[in-house]
Amino acid sequence: MATQAERSITRRSSGRPPWLARAPLPLQLLKGLLITGIVAVMAFPFISVILTSFAAPGASRGLVPDAFSLDAYRSILTGGVVSRALVVSIGVTAVGTTLSVIVTVLLAFGLTRTREMPGGRVILFGILATMLFSAGIIPSYLLVRELGLLDSYWSLILPTLVSAFNLVVVRNFFMELPQDLLDAARIDGASEWRVLWAIVVPLSRAVIAVIALFYAVGYWNGFFNALLYIQDSSKWPIQLVLNTYVLQGSPLSQIQNPDLTPPLQSIQMAVVVLATVPVLLVYPFVQRYFTKGVLTGAIKG
Rank of each mutant, 00 (worst) to 15 (best):
V207W: 00
P178T: 06
L213V: 14
R194F: 07
L182M: 15
L181D: 01
A216N: 05
A216H: 01
A190I: 04
P202W: 13
L196R: 08
L196G: 10
E192W: 07
E192L: 11
A206R: 14
P178Q: 06
V200H: 00
A216L: 09
S204G: 10
P202I: 13
E192T: 04
A198Q: 15
V195T: 13
L177K: 02
Q179H: 12
F174M: 05
V201T: 13
R194K: 15
R194I: 01
P178E: 08
W197E: 07
W193F: 15
A212K: 04
V201H: 13
P178C: 07
V200L: 12
S204A: 13
V201S: 10
A206P: 06
A198E: 15
W197H: 14
I208M: 14
V195M: 10
V207P: 01
P202S: 12
L203C: 08
V200S: 02
S191D: 10
M175L: 14
V195F: 11
D188E: 14
A184V: 04
Y215D: 01
R186M: 03
I211A: 05
A206Y: 05
A212R: 02
V201W: 12
A206T: 14
A212W: 08
A198R: 15
A184H: 10
A185Y: 06
F174E: 00
E176N: 13
A185P: 02
L177G: 01
A184W: 05
D183C: 06
A198I: 06
R205A: 10
V210C: 11
S191T: 15
Y215L: 06
V210I: 11
A185R: 02
V201N: 10
A212V: 11
I187V: 15
I187P: 01
V210L: 14
V200R: 03
E176R: 12
V201Y: 10
I211P: 00
I187S: 04
A198W: 12
E192Y: 11
A185N: 05
A184F: 05
L182E: 04
S191A: 11
L182V: 04
